[in-house]
């Protein structure tokens, strides 16, 4: 399966490597024509304000929005999740996403870089724990009924926030599975995407 990786800015190389390891064929997407023949899309970590601006100047925004409306499966991590969320708090007023998933996220909700952290997560459907890297990560504050929470972290106050969510064939994470060397989250995405496009998820 050909999976586009939004390559305007951010850690798109790591997503491409993880997707390749998980058995897909990654394709860098910088312009609308790069979406041709792509079955799914990964939106990487990066700066969501910069990505929002570059989506406009590259002409990718309408093209990608159209594909997402047609049901193309999307994987979004950190900034990528912000781009897919219906509601964003603490963003710039001119920052716009695709409003693909019924959820509210707070940009940099886990704090500045000093608060960036690693932890081990228990993920629904996976055995053992998954190493997770959070970088100035967004917090998921609300999810709609169509959204399934697959993993959460608990704060010192006992309050729990979702950090991995599935909505249809879309998968979004506050953390960066592409940085940990463990590709099971990417495999999970490809399995869902394959059932959406019809195929076994492999190239």
């Amino acid at each position: 399966m050909k999976v586009g990786v939004l390559a305007l800015q951010g850690d798109f190389r790591e997503h491409a490597l993880a997707l390749e390891t998980a058995g897909a064929e990654p394709v860098e997407v910088r312009r609308p024509e790069h979406l041709a023949g792509v079955d799914a899309i990964a939106l990487p970590g990066g700066e969501s304000t910069t990505l929002s601006m570059l989506l406009d100047s590259s002409g990718l925004r309408p093209a990608l929005a159209g594909r997402l409306e047609d049901g193309m499966p999307a994987l979004g991590t950190c900034a990528g999740m912000i781009l897919l969320a219906a509601r964003v708090r603490d963003g710039r007023p001119d920052q716009r996403g695709f409003a693909t998933i019924d959820m509210t996220v707070r940009r940099n909700g886990f704090g500045r870089q000093l608060e960036s952290f690693e932890c081990d997560l228990e993920v629904t459907g996976l055995t053992g724990t998954v190493p997770a890297v959070f970088i100035r990560a967004p917090v998921v504050e609300e999810v709609g009924p169509s959204v399934e929470v697959l993993a959460s972290v608990t704060g010192a106050d006992g309050r729990t926030s979702p950090v991995l969510c599935r909505a249809g064939h879309h998968l979004v994470a506050s953390f960066h599975p592409e940085l940990s060397g463990d590709v099971r989250i990417h495999e999970m995405f490809l399995a869902g995407a394959a059932s959406a496009v019809g195929g076994d998820g492999r190239k």
Partner: peptide
């Protein structure tokens, strides 16, 4: 990994 991770996020910028 967390320290280098922020640099990864700035790539291409």
């Amino acid at each position: 990994r967390v320290k280098r991770g922020l640099a990864e996020m700035l790539r291409g910028g």
